[in-house]
Simulated assay, not measured.
Amino acid sequence: MPEHLIPAPLPGTFYRRPAPDAAPYVAEGSPVEADTVIACIEVMKQFNEMTAGHGGQLMAFLVEDGEAVEIGQPVARVLT
């Protein structure tokens, strides 16, 4: 099965959940569609949703919740 790395579309702070007290958008091992929201990136108090970009199974997140990311940095792996 092909593996795809999902890159951060912009620099900022990576969050796996929409709010501190909310459940994560998606858990590792879960099936995803190309348009499934998997995380958000905060830039100057604006939260930008990130989608998987590929359908398949989200295998792993490559960054921690609340970690700073750079544009193009791989943040998750999807098996298609």
Results as ranks from 00 to 15, higher is better:
residue 60 A to Y: 03
residue 50 M to H: 06
residue 72 G to Q: 14
residue 45 K to R: 12
residue 46 Q to Y: 10
residue 71 I to V: 08
residue 41 I to W: 02
residue 44 M to A: 12
residue 57 Q to M: 10
residue 32 V to N: 01
residue 29 G to E: 02
residue 24 P to K: 14
residue 58 L to M: 13
residue 59 M to Q: 07
residue 22 A to G: 05
residue 44 M to D: 13
residue 55 G to I: 09
residue 50 M to Y: 06
residue 62 L to Y: 12
residue 21 D to A: 05
residue 49 E to F: 08
residue 65 D to Y: 03
residue 72 G to W: 03
residue 33 E to V: 11
residue 36 T to W: 11
residue 25 Y to M: 14
residue 55 G to Y: 15
residue 63 V to P: 01
residue 19 A to F: 08
residue 71 I to G: 11
residue 29 G to Y: 02
residue 28 E to A: 10
residue 59 M to F: 00
residue 57 Q to W: 01
residue 29 G to T: 00
residue 65 D to V: 02
residue 38 I to A: 14
residue 66 G to A: 12
residue 63 V to L: 07
residue 41 I to H: 03
residue 58 L to A: 10
residue 28 E to V: 13
residue 26 V to N: 08
residue 70 E to F: 01
residue 37 V to G: 14
residue 43 V to P: 02
residue 52 A to F: 06
residue 61 F to K: 15
residue 68 A to S: 11
residue 70 E to P: 00
residue 29 G to H: 01
residue 35 D to K: 10
residue 20 P to C: 09
residue 30 S to N: 04
residue 73 Q to V: 14
residue 54 H to F: 15
residue 29 G to P: 00
residue 35 D to H: 08
residue 47 F to S: 03
residue 73 Q to M: 15
residue 53 G to S: 12
residue 27 A to N: 12
residue 61 F to S: 08
residue 33 E to C: 13
residue 66 G to P: 04
residue 31 P to C: 14
residue 57 Q to L: 04
residue 20 P to D: 08
residue 48 N to R: 04
residue 47 F to N: 01
residue 37 V to Q: 13
residue 61 F to Q: 06
residue 52 A to M: 14
residue 51 T to Y: 11
residue 20 P to N: 04
residue 39 A to N: 04
residue 32 V to L: 02
residue 24 P to D: 09
residue 72 G to N: 11
residue 61 F to V: 13
residue 37 V to E: 15
residue 64 E to V: 12
residue 19 A to N: 09
residue 27 A to W: 00
residue 72 G to E: 15
residue 71 I to Q: 05
residue 70 E to A: 11
residue 32 V to H: 06
residue 28 E to G: 13
residue 41 I to Y: 04
residue 44 M to K: 03
residue 40 C to R: 02
residue 57 Q to R: 03
residue 22 A to I: 09
residue 37 V to C: 06
residue 23 A to N: 10
residue 47 F to M: 11
residue 27 A to K: 01
residue 30 S to G: 09
residue 60 A to T: 15
residue 37 V to S: 14
residue 68 A to H: 04
residue 48 N to P: 00
residue 69 V to Q: 01
residue 23 A to D: 15
residue 48 N to W: 15
residue 53 G to I: 14
residue 25 Y to V: 04
residue 45 K to G: 10
residue 46 Q to W: 07
residue 18 P to I: 10
residue 26 V to H: 06
residue 19 A to L: 12
residue 21 D to Y: 01
residue 48 N to I: 03
residue 38 I to S: 07
residue 66 G to Y: 04
residue 41 I to Q: 03
residue 58 L to Q: 13
residue 69 V to I: 10
residue 60 A to F: 06
residue 63 V to N: 08
